[in-house]
Structures are given as C-alpha cells and as structure tokens.
Write a protein that binds this DNA or RNA. Structure first.
Lengths: 146, 146
DNA sequence: GTAACTGCAAAATATTTGCATCCTT
DNA sequence: AAGGATGCAAATATTTTGCAGTTAC
C-alpha cells in the first residue's frame, strides 16, 4: 500500500508538471512533495528547512515563482509579511484561480490551512466599487490545537 | 479656514500621541499627517517617499512599529508581500483592535482603502476551529478609477 | 535632569540577477 | 542537440540592532 500510494503521488506530480509544460526536475518534484504531504501552507523558509539542505535557496525562489505563475500554487496573504503558499485545487491550474475558499491561520501551531469547504461570502460593497477577488483569512485555534 | 483645519489636525495628532503615552516628535507628527491627509493605506515605501527625505529609514520602521503596538494604526495583509498600514478608528486605540471592517485594494490605482461601513461577515468554520479575527481583503476597481 | 526618541553605521536577512554548467526532452 | 533549469557568486533590497547624541517633558 505505501508503494501504491507513493506511485500515485509520483504520477500526480508528473502530471501536474507536464500539464503545465514544465520539465520534471528533482527540485520541482521535491517541492511539490512537500505541498502534497501536508495539509497546511508553506512559507519560503519552511520549504528550505524541510527540503533538507538539498537545493539552493535561489532554486526555491524560482520554483515557487514558476508554480505561482502556472497556477499550481497560490499565495496566502498574512499580516506579518510572511508569504505562504498552498496548492491550488485542480480546477484552478492554468493561471486562472477560482479558489473561493478561505484561509485559516492557527496562532498556536502557526500553521495555515486552506479550508476548501468554506466558501467566501458575498461582500456587499459601497456604490462605485467593483470586486474581482475576495480573500478571507481567519485566525484562531485550529482543530488540532484546541 | 485652512488655518482652522490645520489646527484641528494638529490637535488631533497631539491628542492621539498623548493618549498613548508617546512623546510628540516631528517624525511622529509628520507620519500621522500622512495618514490623516488621505483615505488609503500606506506602505513603508510610500511613507519614506512622501515624507520627502526628511527622516531616517530606521525612524520610519520604528515609528510604524510603535504605532502598531499602540493600536494607532493596523496592518493590512496583501498577497504581494507589501505590508500596508492604515489608521485605526478611535475605538480601537489602546492595543485592542475592533476593526471589523474590510479592506479594498484597487488594482488600477493600487490604493488600499478601509471600507469602514462594510462589516466583515460571519464565517462558519468546520467543527473544531475557533475564530478570533476575520480579515477580508477585496480587490477590484475603486470608485475613483472606474 | 531623565527618559525617550532619533540618526548613523553596521549587521543580519531576504530577494534578485548573471552566467557557466548540467539535465530534461 | 537545444532549451530549460540549477547552482554559485555577487549585486540589491529590506529589516534589525547598537550606540551616541538630541529632544520632549
């Protein structure tokens, strides 16, 4: 079973990269692994740490940028100037994001989660404003920490 | 009338600083002026620019930090890693923020506005999560740009 | 006068760029 | 083989810290 699962992940990763016209390289696979292995979002620093000194800091910057451009991952705004990245759902691959889910930051474990089941509410704006995208970030205690 | 108005602003600034046990210094007054003079939010860079080379970059960092600590201004998270600051409403001075308004980023003029009249919606979270603060950032076109 | 604030210098971090080399296709 | 991706070095940019001099109260 672990064998099978890892094959599935490999396939998924290869598919993601191919679909986006990216060559399949070690660093990209490794970084995607990190994202797939866990629920939360990752900051640049997390990735460098967890990748285990394997590749260059610059490669991480470039890889993340590439993934954002292709719509494989998206950024989550936070108030403390630490950008976090999370995997996009399949539907939003290809550059256009349709992630209308909210983000949750636990200030106990400091993890960030995409709550895919929670849809962003409609916001009624004052006259003259038109909305294109609504970002909701909730902070509090997550289910693992309470 | 301009005289009167400027006196009022001066009073307001002095009051704000006094109320928060901060000494009234040139840089603080100048920075508060910038915030009071306009509707939108300011990024660190804006402040350095608009302040007209008057004071040190370090002073800006420290002043902004002080203001955030005291609850005079608050940060607005953005997806592009550029922290923006905006004045808090009177009620939230003193460290505790009760700003339940939303933020709007216009991607034409690139200004950030606090829409004080738009209250953040209730978010229904999955079981196990508890919310403490909800941040909503909408982007689109503002009323001045459309 | 004293504590708080500022400005300068410098350290520590973070991010970007150029280029030679290596890898994927 | 060719183009893209990586790694290293170095250039930039950003933020923090220490300390001496200045200012507000």
């Amino acid at each position: 079973m672990p064998k099978q699962a890892s094959v599935n992940i490999e396939n998924k990763i290869a598919g993601l990269l191919k679909r986006n016209n990216l060559s399949i390289t070690d660093s990209r696979k490794k970084i995607l692994h990190l994202f797939l292995e866990q629920t939360g979002a990752l900051a640049h620093g997390d990735i460098e740490k967890r990748a285990g000194e394997k590749f260059d800091r610059v490669t991480v910057y470039r890889t993340l940028q590439t993934f954002v451009d292709k719509g494989i991952i998206h950024t989550i705004p936070t108030a403390d100037n630490s950008i976090r990245y999370a995997l996009c759902k399949d539907e939003c691959a290809g550059g256009h994001h349709h992630d209308h889910h909210i983000h949750f930051v636990c200030h106990k474990c400091n993890n960030t989660y995409c709550l895919d089941d929670v849809v962003t509410p409609e916001i009624k704006l004052p006259k003259g404003y038109s909305a294109e995208h609504v970002e909701v970030v909730v902070d509090g205690i997550c289910k693992n920490c309470r």
